[in-house]
Each structure stands twice: as C-alpha cells, then as structure tokens.
Design a protein around this nucleic acid. Structure first.
Lengths: 219, 219
DNA sequence: TGGCGGGTAGGAGATATCTCACAGAGGAGG
DNA sequence: CCTCCTCTGTGAGATATCTCCTACCCGCCA
C-alpha cells in the first residue's frame, strides 16, 4: 500500500492508529520532504493531521523579535497538528525536516466527514496526547538530573544526518538550557575525547563511541 | 448549586467543562478532603473522573523499592483520573491533599452511560490534556533556565499551608532535581535574607517578601 | 572596499551545585 | 534504655556551569 522513497514499507507506525480504516487510508496522502524543508509553516493554518512515518524533524518557535527557538524533536509515530486540531493550541509552530521525512496526511475534510463524529477517534487522540505528556514528563525529569554532556551526546546522535552534526550552536545551547560558552567547552571535551571531529560546517560524529559513552557512566 | 466548606461558590473552574450539563451535574458528587488525605490511592482503580475545585494536592509515585517520589502539584481546574480514563496510563498514582481540597467527582457509570458516546466529551478531554502538556512543557523549559532559588521560592509559595512550609526536604530536593545539600544551603540563604524563618516542624514564610523576590531579579 | 552582524572559539574568574563526611534530634522497636 | 533509621544541618573541597570579554572568520550590503 504505502511505499516510501527508501523502497520499504512505512506503515509500521500506523498500527497505533486503528481509526485508519482502508476507507480513510485511501483518502490520505503520503507526503515526503527533503532536509530542512518545512512540514508545517508557522502561523499558517494546519491543512491536515499528519503522522510521521519516517525521518525526524524539529519544531521551532519564532519569537516576536524574529528569533527562532528550538522547541522539540519529532520522531516516527508522532503526530503533527493534533494540538491545533484538538484546540489546545491556537497558532501552529513551524516544523522543519531533519534529513528525508515521510508523513501520512489525513485531510481536514476527511477528518470532519468521517472521523469527527467517532468517539473512538477523539479518544485515541486524547490517549496519544496523554502518552506524549507522560513520556515528555519523564524525559524532562531525567534531563533535569542528567549531566549536560549526556544530554548533548544524546541530542547529537538524534539530530545528526549521515553521521554529521551541523546545527546552529546558539540554538542548541538555548534548547539544552546551557550557556553558549559551556556548549563550546563541552564540544571541545568531546573533541579531545575523540567522540567527534571538526569538519567544515559542523562536526563528524563517532557514533559507536558516543553510544558507548552514553551507556557507560550514564544514569 | 455547589457549596464549598468555605461557604463560597466553587463552580468557577467548571466553566471550562461544558459537557457538565445540569443533568450530569445532578449525578455528580462533591467530595472534600482534609490535609494529607488521599484523593486517589496508588494502584487502586480510579473510581471516577475528578475535577479539582478548591485547594491543592501532590501526585506521588511509589517506586518498587518503597521510596515515595514527588511528581507533580495539582491545582483547581485540574483533572484527576483523565489519563487513566483515556488509557494513557495503566496504574493511577497516589494523590494527597495539601490543606483542604474540594473535588467534583463524575462517577464512572455516568461517564459510560452519558458521556462516552459524545465526541465533544472526548474532544474536550483531549484538549484539556493537550493544554496541560503545553503548559507543562513551557514550565519545565523555564525550570531548566531559572536558577534554583527561584524555583524553590515558587514551590514554597505554592505548597505552603497557611504560610507554613513543612515538606519532607529529601523529597523536595529530589523533585526539584537538586542535591539535598544544596537545598539546605539555599534554605539558609533564604533564612539569612529574611524570606523564611525556622519554626518547629517547618519554616514560616514571609509571603510578600518572597513574591517580591520572585518578581524582582527574576528571568 | 570597508564595515556590520552573526556564528565560532576560547581565556579568566565568578557562582551554582555536587559529593563525601560527620553530627545531632527524634521516632520505632526490642 | 539502647539501637537503628530517617531527617535535618553543616563543613570542606571538587565540578559544572555562568558571565564578561576578546578575537577571528565570513557573508552581506552600502
């Protein structure tokens, strides 16, 4: 049924959404995005509910002063537009792809016509948001305890594309709640420990070494 | 309609829940709890959905080793049992009153018979959980930035009963993600700054001074 | 060409926070 | 009464992290 640009089936994350009957699925669209391409544009009305099938993305908030702040990372199985759909959020935030991304888009019209009247649909949405809340809670709670170096290592592994990290360090420092200076300091530690190596425009990671670092002295 | 033990109307938080028609309200119960009384018992099936009308409470998680961890504080307008109801959470966590608390309890039977089939009910639940998620996100994000002393001051103000703070400091240190030693150190700073004063079994707060402290050098 | 502005990099010196160690107070049980 | 245990409080000495400051590179634009 659904084919990804990688040639593999991408409907595994769909198992969590039983309201996606074949009848509904036939009216959905599979969208794909390239690196740094916007999945959602800030402020613009969210056209439909999207389920991330493959790839990762970052959710950005643009402040009044024009500054862009990194809010959150998105993974396969995550929903986009749920909070707006449900009325918990007024203005959608921008979502940018990190590497290639594939999404299943459920058009607004289909939701209104075939899903909005089904209690099970809303119930599942509520459950999904609730699970997300609990997951985020434990994640942030652990982030509060974890030393910065572990949070940074984890983040670099999740946002690197093809083993290369090339984020805006100012934003990353902000996202991780740490001063830019300290981010630089820690990056140097990583370099000196051989976990990463500088290269024009970013850092190349030694992914196995970083994973070992995370599972070693961690929690 | 609803009278609180304080003699004032307590239905203000109910405005956010339009599915509470008079017909449903008539089948609900108004429950009140005293200081440190359990609103929800850990593990026990949650009998019904509760809406907090007045007072505060703390959500506790009891770990396998018997240790109790402070997870979250509950305020008027918050729901109890939503995550279990929606299926996002398997085992309910214990909830203990902080001072006198009043709740509106919607019996499980009423939910099943009159609400479960209404999409609007689930939609509102989803919205409520979504709002909670967003609020928690911004809260935790700010917590990451805020210096410990501000987080502590804020917490002391919210958990104090009649201007007196008498929590278990081991748990508080854990909840705020700080070493017990540092909590003690900061409490002494507060004492020396005249924000709090020791008294048997806890600390008496100078609430106005603390609020001034929060709004002064803050963020 | 020259000058911004933003991002990167790092030095020096404060603070915030942690770990370990110790001591006293009060409750529970033998 | 003694002992064990938990909570409270504190000292001393490490680390983690912050703030301020300087320098350099680079793309953009007048």
């Amino acid at each position: 049924m659904l084919q990804s640009p990688w040639g593999a089936r991408t409907d595994a994350p769909l198992a969590a959404f039983p309201f996606l009957t074949d009848a509904v699925l036939r009216q959905c669209v599979c969208r794909t995005f390239g690196d740094r391409e916007p999945l959602v544009t800030a402020g613009a009305p969210v056209p439909d509910l999207m389920i991330v099938l493959r790839g990762r993305a970052r959710i950005m908030a643009t402040a009044a002063n024009g500054k862009a702040a990194l809010l959150q990372f998105v993974q396969p199985g995550d929903l986009l537009g749920e909070l707006t759909l449900v009325g918990a959020e007024d203005a959608a935030k921008a979502v940018l792809a990190i590497g290639p991304v594939a999404c299943l888009a459920i058009p607004q019209s289909v939701i209104e016509a075939q899903l909005a009247t089904a209690p099970a649909f809303w119930q599942l949405l509520a459950q999904h948001i609730g699970v997300k809340l609990l997951r985020r809670m434990t994640h942030m709670a652990s982030a509060q305890t974890q030393a910065f170096k572990y949070r940074l290592a984890e983040l670099m592994l999740t946002v690197a594309v093809a083993g290369v990290y090339q984020e805006n360090n100012v934003q990353i420092a902000d996202y991780l709640g740490v001063s830019y200076r300290h981010l630089m300091y820690t990056l140097r530690q990583f370099r000196e420990a051989g976990l990463i190596a500088k290269q024009p425009g970013g850092y190349r990671l030694d992914a196995p070494a970083m994973r070992a670092f995370l599972t070693a002295g961690d929690r």
